[in-house]
Amino acid sequence: MPQIDIRPVENAQELEEMFYQRWLVLRSPLGMEKGSERDSHEDTAFHLIGMCDRQIIASGRLRELSPELGTISYIAVLPEFQNQGIGTKLMEKLLAQAKQNNFKTVRLMSRINAVKFYQKLGFSEKENPFDYLGIPHVFMQLEI
Rank of each mutant, 00 (worst) to 15 (best):
1 M>Q: 10
2 P>C: 08
6 I>M: 09
6 I>C: 07
8 P>A: 07
8 P>D: 10
9 V>E: 03
10 E>M: 10
10 E>Y: 03
12 A>Q: 13
15 L>P: 00
15 L>M: 13
18 M>W: 00
18 M>K: 11
20 Y>I: 11
20 Y>E: 09
23 W>P: 01
24 L>A: 05
25 V>G: 07
25 V>M: 10
27 R>S: 06
27 R>E: 09
29 P>F: 11
29 P>Q: 10
30 L>V: 08
32 M>P: 04
32 M>D: 12
35 G>I: 02
37 E>L: 00
38 R>D: 00
38 R>S: 02
41 H>I: 12
41 H>R: 13
42 E>Q: 14
43 D>N: 14
43 D>R: 12
44 T>A: 12
45 A>W: 00
45 A>F: 03
46 F>V: 07
46 F>A: 08
47 H>N: 10
48 L>C: 11
48 L>G: 05
48 L>M: 14
49 I>A: 08
49 I>H: 05
49 I>P: 01
51 M>Q: 11
52 C>K: 09
52 C>S: 15
53 D>H: 11
54 R>T: 13
55 Q>N: 12
55 Q>W: 03
55 Q>Y: 03
56 I>F: 08
61 R>G: 01
61 R>A: 01
61 R>Y: 05
61 R>Q: 06
63 R>T: 02
64 E>F: 00
64 E>R: 13
64 E>W: 02
65 L>N: 09
67 P>H: 09
67 P>Q: 11
69 L>V: 13
70 G>A: 12
71 T>L: 06
72 I>P: 01
72 I>C: 05
73 S>N: 11
75 I>N: 02
75 I>M: 13
76 A>Q: 10
77 V>R: 00
80 E>F: 09
81 F>L: 07
84 Q>H: 07
85 G>D: 03
87 G>H: 01
90 L>S: 04
94 L>T: 03
97 Q>K: 13
98 A>K: 02
100 Q>S: 10
101 N>S: 12
102 N>W: 07
102 N>R: 09
103 F>I: 06
103 F>P: 03
104 K>V: 03
105 T>D: 04
108 L>P: 01
108 L>C: 08
112 I>D: 08
114 A>V: 07
115 V>F: 00
115 V>E: 08
116 K>V: 04
117 F>S: 07
117 F>A: 04
118 Y>S: 04
121 L>S: 13
121 L>N: 11
121 L>M: 14
122 G>L: 09
123 F>G: 10
124 S>Y: 15
124 S>H: 15
125 E>I: 15
125 E>G: 14
126 K>N: 11
130 F>I: 14
130 F>Q: 15
130 F>D: 14
131 D>A: 13
131 D>L: 15
131 D>K: 06
131 D>T: 13
132 Y>A: 12
132 Y>R: 15
132 Y>T: 12
134 G>F: 00
134 G>K: 04
134 G>M: 04
136 P>F: 04
136 P>S: 04
137 H>L: 08
139 F>A: 12
143 E>A: 10
144 I>A: 06
